[in-house]
């Protein structure tokens, strides 16, 4: 598994310019007080592992990874772990910039519970895309799964822009207004769905033929 993760990080190192520029832009927006914008950070970053799967298929790494001593379940898990690492980094950076922005711009009083709700919202939006798309990728390959990916990316992008531009649908506020139990239930449900997605991907990939 370690070798597979190293491969993912080498791939990231070779393709990191665009994500880094994007993250810098998002962090800048967060610091300037546009806390809604930071929701784009995990959304954008969560697309990366799926796009690397397309690179894998183009170079035939998907087949090569099956002739090396790695179980199919490890191949799937390495993608999910890589996804979680990337999303975690993007959330830390986004939250950090949001924290600074909220403290610098004193128009509204900084409320810890609202900030934590924002982080929860970031985690949820970050997990949704890979949670839905990765099982399709592992079952059908990225070329066939692209239609599902495009529809879903459009849905996520559209939703995110609605949340960013609407006062009523501000994700952080929605989460902030929710009761504590409801927040925990939603977080637990998303975590559970992510694990189900992980398990389904392993099942699909074990059955797949090349």
């Amino acid at each position: 598994m370690k070798g597979l993760l190293i491969k993912e990080f080498i791939m990231f190192r070779k393709n990191c310019i665009a994500p880094i520029i994007f993250l810098i832009f998002i962090m800048f927006a967060g610091i300037m007080g546009q806390s809604q914008m930071i929701v784009f950070a995990p959304v954008f970053i969560s697309i990366i592992p799926s796009s690397y799967m397309t690179f894998d298929e183009t170079s035939r790494w998907d087949i090569y990874s099956l002739i090396i001593p790695e179980k199919r379940s490890n191949i799937v898990s390495s993608k999910y772990i890589f996804t979680l690492i990337l999303i975690s980094i993007s959330i830390i950076l986004a939250a950090f910039s949001g924290f600074i922005g909220l403290n610098i711009n004193k128009e509204n009083e900084f409320v810890w519970s609202s900030f934590l709700s924002l982080i929860e919202a970031l985690i949820i939006v970050g997990l949704i895309f890979p949670m839905v798309i990765l099982p399709f990728n592992f079952k059908l390959g990225t070329a066939k799964a692209r239609i599902a990916a495009m529809i879903f990316a459009g849905f996520i992008g559209g939703s995110a822009s609605v949340f960013v531009n609407s006062e009523e649908l501000n994700l952080a506020l929605i989460f902030s207004d929710m009761g504590g139990l409801l927040k925990i239930i939603i977080a637990a449900a998303v975590a559970m769905l992510f694990l189900i997605s992980w398990g389904l991907s392993i099942i699909f990939y074990k059955k797949r033929e090349f």
């Binding site: 070798g3 190293i6 080498i10």
Partner: peptide, 24 residues
């Protein structure tokens, strides 16, 4: 195999870094 499945951006050093963590 008839096509070697190494990602196109990788070089020899990258291949060594990956394989030494895959093959015992």
């Amino acid at each position: 195999l008839d096509e070697i499945g190494i990602p196109i951006q990788f070089n020899i050093k990258d291949v060594d870094s990956i394989m030494k963590n895959i093959f015992t």
